[in-house]
Design a protein around this nucleic acid. Structure first.
Lengths: 154, 154
DNA sequence: CTAGAACCTCAAGTATGGTTGAAGTCAAGC
DNA sequence: GCTTGACTTCAACCATACTTGAGGTTCTAG
């Protein structure tokens, strides 16, 4: 049992398809050595990086950002607790933001279910701009997410 | 002021680009009447549907699923509280699931930061299978999300 | 009645995160 | 030493969610 792994071994141990591993390498998230015969060989440490990638994916973090995070981890060495704390904290904030967004949405939904919505027509979730256009142009619900619409709306 | 809206009016009131509105129509999420000259005219109710679409998008719900949800709403009539409660409850569950996933991930991160991770090498977040492969093959962290890998891993 | 803004369709392009397939090479067991 | 499975590259394809552009039509205001 060599201390290097083939792509197939990494795939079955990590649960990530070989094609995805090659893709991650192309994208600079992981690295490999090549044998004389041009086949990939991975250090065991790559499994830790892949676990981080999987965790990031589960949190909905784009690969480019995961790559940036991985760039702060030692490629070969086992990460120290400090390395890991740094990474961890950054992601916690990211995850917290995503949770906050979802909770805000959930609260609006809950409010609408529970309160009778002030007669539905005035519900802030359902009436972002319908009636509001006659009152003024401010406060578009979810507008902050739709920068693309600016071009068309201008 | 007619009680029908042009695509441009809907776009500026909803904050959604005309191209996206046409796309939503192609995908069956919204509908429009055509004028003699083949231009789209929208009922005001479409703004409510678009608000629902925006809310769903913010929650990360795919358009196909949003379409299914919209199919339960009256297309022309103002939705009743019952209509809205049904929709609301379905989405709440969806949102709750997403929040739960993120919180589970956050908890693992927090545990790893706070506790010293039982020496990092045994951390359940970072070591899904690295050492575990020598112990047994069970319990792959995040495996439940990677059905695609099955083909390659088999 | 005409200019220009707003609309139309349809095809192609963008970005993300990969998978699939063809055509060929490498490596390990019998 | 040869077969077979695992590996290689590269290009093309998939899904999602749109945008962009070309080429042409309609609507509205002066």
């Amino acid at each position: 049992m060599a201390d290097e792994l083939t792509i197939g071994e990494v795939a079955s141990r990590s649960g990530v398809a070989p094609s995805a591993l090659r893709f991650y390498e192309d994208e600079g998230l992981i690295a490999s050595r090549r044998t004389e015969g041009n086949q990939r060989r991975y250090e065991r440490a790559v499994l830790r990086r892949i676990a981080v990638i999987q965790a990031g994916r589960a949190a909905g973090i784009p690969l480019q950002q995961i790559r940036a995070t991985l760039a702060t981890l030692p490629a070969h060495r086992t990460p120290t607790r400090r390395d890991w704390q740094r990474l961890s904290r950054g992601w916690r904030e990211e995850i917290d933001r995503r949770i906050a967004t979802l909770e805000a949405l959930r609260n609006r939904l809950t409010t609408c279910i529970g309160c009778g919505c002030l007669s539905i027509d005035k519900c802030e979730l359902l009436n972002p701009d319908d009636e509001a256009a006659e009152i003024g142009s401010g406060a578009h619900y979810l507008r902050r997410d739709s920068r693309r619409a600016q071009t068309a709306a201008s």
